[in-house]
Every structure is written in C-alpha cells, then in structure tokens.
Write a protein that binds this DNA or RNA. Structure first.
Lengths: 248, 248
DNA sequence: GCGAATAGTAATGACGCATAACACTTGTGA
DNA sequence: TCACAAGTGTTATGCGTCATTACTATTCGC
C-alpha cells in the first residue's frame, strides 16, 4: 500500500536521477553536480538532500539502475526474438548490448569504465555484479543450445588447467537451477563477451570514426557471427538482415 | 645544442608529468589538481604555470605522451621478437598492448576512455591518432605475412560493400609506402583489435576478477590465438609458452 | 487544524584555477 | 669581478564553484 506522499517522493527521486542522466549526456561526462541538477529541475541544491544523503549515494543509485537497465534491456530483447531461432536470439542479445551502450555511453562508462573522480564504491559488490549480469544472457543462451544438443565444439585449443579451475568454481557458485555448459564452451563464451565488449567500447568512444555507420553495422554483424561460430554456437548463415541490428 | 638551462627545464617538465601520473595511479582516476602535483613535488601550485599554461595543456601533454608510449612499447616488443616467427610477433604485439594497459590503467583510460571532466580536446587529431597507432603494428604484421604469401583466408563471411568502401578509403589515405592487405584481411584485423581491446578492457577494470591471474593469462593466450586463426594469420600451435606473455 | 514532509534562503567552509607582485638563483657579458 | 637579465619560485589575492548545514516558510495529507 503506497500513500500519495510515497508516490510523489518516488516520482521526485526518479526525476532527480533522470535529470542527472540528462546532464551527464549533455555534459558528456559522468561528473555531476547537485547544484546543476537542482537548477535544471527548478529547485535549489539543498532540497536534494531530502532524497539523497550525499553525492555518492546518488551515484550509487545511478550505477545500480544502470546495471538493472542494461540487464533487463538485454533480457527483453532476447525475449522478443523467436525462442526457436538461436542465431536470432544471439544477435538480439549482442545488438541490445551494443544499442544500450551507444545510447547511454555515460552509463556504460559509469559501470564499465574508471570510477568517477570523487566517488568511492560502497563495496566490492556492484562491480562484480556488472560482469555477472552482462554475461548472464550470453551464458544462458549457450546453456539452452546445449540443452538442445546443438552446441558444437568451439575452435579453442584446449582449456587450461588454471582456467578450468576457475570455471568450475564459478559454475558451482552460480544458481544450481541454472543449466551449465562445458568448460570449453564457457571459455568460448568469455571470448564472445570480450569481442562484443571490445567492439562496443571502441565504437562508442569514437575509435571507429573512419567507418560510416553502415560499415560499422556490417562490422558488428560480422563480429557477432565470428564470435558465435568460433564458440561452437549454432549459427545459421546467411546472416540476418541489418534491420535486426538497428530495429527492435 | 641544448643549454644547461634547457635541460633543467626539460627535466622539470618530465618530473611534473611523472608526478601527475603517480597521483593518477594513487588516486585511481584521471583527475588531477595542480595543487596536488605541486605539493607532491615540494613546490607551490603557481610555479607550475611556468611550465604549462593551464591544466588542459598538461592533460594534452599527458595524452600525447601516452600515445607515444603505447606505440613505442608495442613496436619495441615486436622488434624484440624474432622477425621470422610471425606467431611470436603477433603474440608479442598483443602482449605488449595488454601489459601496457595493465600497468597504466589510468593512461589507458586517458586515451581510450571517456574524457576527463573539465577537459576539452584541442582538436579532433589525438583521438583519431590513438586508433591509428594502436592498429598500426597489427596491420603491418598482417602486411608482412601477406608479403610472404602466408596469409590465409579469414573465416569471415564476406566483406560488406559499405565496409569495403571505408577500408579502401583508409588504405588510400595511409602512407603509400605501407604495404596493404586484402580488404577481408583488414576486416579480420579489426576483429582482432576488438577482441584484444575487449579482453584488455574487461581485465583492467576488474571484470575478470573471478579468474586467477594464471587463468587470465591462459584466457589471454587463447583469445590471441583465436583472433589470429580466424583472421587467416599464420599461427603455429602449440602456442608459445606462458613466459612469452609475462616476460619481455 | 495539526503535524510531518518538503522546499527555500542564507551561511559556512573548503577547494581549485589562475594571476600579479615580489624575491631569489644562475649564467653570462662587460 | 660585478652587474644585468632571464629564469624560477613564493606569497598574497581574487574569483568562482560546490557540498553541506542551520534555520525558516510552506504545502499537503490525514
């Protein structure tokens, strides 16, 4: 049961966070000032302290939100793809990741880049969480392919013993309910993530500036395809049309 | 002919830059304050203005230095590898890139991450330059393999027309003296860079925290190997020993 | 109408960039 | 040897911004 007051308060909190994000986008950095936020909202800075104890608390909230948003965005995009179409689902997940980062470069920097100047993370949790959630959809996609017996051998050489130990430890630590994949596939999955993350990072920070948007799209599809193929993920050429990358 | 004064001045400039980098490493961000630098050097802040007109000029110098350092580090590491051993050279280049980033995460953020809060880049040059130099060694390695006729077909599907146009334009713009590679190989080369950059980014920002250092090394070698193989680059298994990754 | 939630005003304290005025050092030429 | 000038550094200062607190006024639900 939420009272009217509580709803108003929640709305204000949302507005503060939304305004902070707008200012980040405008200013092009992850740096924010209470005074700016307040001015932009037609308020005064001290009023914000009714909602956030200090600047760090607001930043923490923004980071947590970014995690959630990226995670749900990717998951939703995957859910929209036909469950039968594994290639399509794979591309949907990768595209959603890319699209989110392109649309929200500041939030991307917030969770995957260097920490903000004055900010110190509350604990080790959130950072690890970022990695976990980002990987989750990819991993579960592989698990589903494995469940259908459609997983091929990845083209990696062999799984190193040290790596194997970590993979086993990680899979043991994850929810027992989650289906697991062979260690070599998990490693290939990490390769996929690296490739995806690398492409997206370079693109977002403008290092693919010598490519036209269309060329970048083509390179992206090629990157995803190559990642899937080398991971033993069931991929069906011809590749889906570009509209799958830009739409949805 | 450098006078004694000029040498002293140059030394001071170096010390300022070095101190700024130390503070960055200490503080864990790319944010720096003149007052901190001066205090750390046993000087007062205004004295720094004898050497740098303002904070942005210092930042620009640091960025340019970072470009140079990364470029020469990678080039030197490649030069130390046997020129005959293409696999070794490839791994040397990738390892140097990785090592530099791991040792200098702040400088990496400086050139490949989001801009520093108050800083505005002097012009479009440096950013583009970062991409160019980082790619240069990889590209020339492929060119050399091509010159020896050892370049296989990359496992990419086909080169998209839009991408092809950009690649041709870029190769035409580069030094005519530089040997070029087929468009499909250039594209594969971009894939290599993405994979390398992605791995290094994730590792440096702690998102591979669930892996032990040894496991990360193994994953890195596997990443490089996979990138080379899928690019048609002549790679010889068994992979070089791990010492090649950590040493040099 | 009462009281809690909320917002504004004003004030405080700290900090950072940048500049100006002044003082010391050092190399060099008369 | 001495004086000058360039170079270097310090103290003092102005200016602006920002986070945060204390206090006061207002609004709004119950």
């Amino acid at each position: 049961m939420t009272t009217r007051r509580e709803r108003a308060r929640a709305a204000t909190i949302d507005e503060i966070k939304e305004t902070a994000l707008s200012l980040m986008r405008e200013h092009g950095s992850t740096d924010i000032r209470f005074s700016d936020i307040a001015r932009s909202m037609g308020m005064t800075a001290p009023a914000l302290y009714r909602y956030f104890a200090d600047r760090d608390e607001l930043l923490t909230a923004l980071i947590v939100d970014a995690f959630d948003d990226l995670g749900t965005t990717v998951a939703e995009s995957r859910a929209r793809a036909s469950a039968d179409d594994l290639s399509g689902s794979f591309l949907a997940v990768a595209s959603a990741y890319r699209r989110w980062v392109n649309q929200e470069p500041q939030r991307f920097a917030l969770i995957f880049g260097m920490p903000v100047p004055g900010y110190v993370a509350p604990d080790e949790g959130p950072t690890t969480e970022a990695a976990r959630r980002a990987m989750a959809q990819l991993e579960s996609l592989f698990a589903e392919a494995a469940a259908r017996g459609m997983l091929g051998r990845p083209t990696i050489h062999e799984v190193d013993d040290a790596l194997l130990g970590c993979i086993i430890a990680k899979q043991a630590a994850s929810e027992p309910a989650e289906a697991t994949v062979p260690a070599e596939t998990f490693q290939a999955c990490l390769h996929c993530w690296s490739a995806l993350h690398g492409f997206v990072s370079l693109e977002t920070y403008g290092h693919f500036g010598f490519l036209t948007p269309e060329a970048r799209d083509a390179l992206f599809v090629s990157t995803v395809r190559l990642a899937a193929l080398s991971s033993g993920f069931p991929w069906s050429d011809p590749a889906p049309t570009l509209s799958m990358v830009t739409n949805t």
